[in-house]
Amino acid sequence: MKRLLSSLIVLFLMVCFVFILLRISPGDPSLKFVSPELNPVLAQKVKDSFGLNRPIPEQFVQFISNIFSGNFGVSYDFRKPVTEVISNHLPFTIIFSLISFIIQLSVSYFLAIWSIKKMNGFVDRLLSKTSLVFYALPSFVIGVFLIFIFSEKLHLLPASGLSSYDVDSLSAGERYADYLLHMILPVITLSLGGIAVFYKYLRDNLDEIFNKMFILNLSAFGLSPKEITKKHVIPNAISPLISVAGVELGVLFSGALITEVIFGLPGMGRLTVNAILSRDYPLVVGCTFMSGLLIIICNLIADLLKAKIDKRLIRGMLN
């Protein structure tokens, strides 16, 4: 409860900080309405209607009173309530991130186990080197490369978009296949870096645990290597990974800008960056709030999971 309360205070302070930062940083949202084809009076009118001509403390008080009623205001660009704009983008981001996250965890888990079984062998060395390469490669390079191979050369997968234009006319099964097809390249692009990180982390943890004295003791007691790995090595090695995974999931929920841009996907990353570039203040605050909230939730879940694995942590959390 205390943890939750402190998280909410952090969230509130973060949103207030972003609000103030936006108001004092250079840039003017009404400049979008300044062009040779538009009358300059319009920009002033729009600025007035945004309430940007009022003193910053007055805007801040209004903002605070609104935020407690769940009102983040109206997006300047979309001309719709911020909550509505975010709710249009958030479901995709959550599904996309979760799929990628599950793939990252499961693939890295199997690779790490495989690698540790073949420790110092060809597979282990190959996986270690390859994971470094994927970790170092920026996602835009991976994305463009995948598009080049699978879309341009092999004509197997679509290069961008969430679905085909005529997706509504398809049967449920075809529709599912259509979404899946469109998601293959983005999910791979988003996941490869994460797989490399989790693999490296887990493999090193496994290696470390295997070299602990208690493992030798357990072997001396006659436990089979399979039993030792399953009951003692993996739980011990996974525990620290959960914290990293919690942070990673929170970051994924904040949006995967590069992947979203390359594949033209409607996620939170693109929404947030566009809002920042066009100085859509209410939307930036709304996106920040949502990202912060998701990161806090993910960290809480990670803590609870860790506590489930290690009962001592529950006592620590309760104290």
Binding site: I147, S151, E152, S160, G161, I262, G264
Partner: peptide
């Protein structure tokens, strides 16, 4: 069709 990335637009044009 919304394609923010220039290289993706080129690829899709060729495709």
């Amino acid at each position: 069709k919304v394609i923010p990335d220039y290289n993706s637009r080129i690829t899709q044009l060729k495709n």
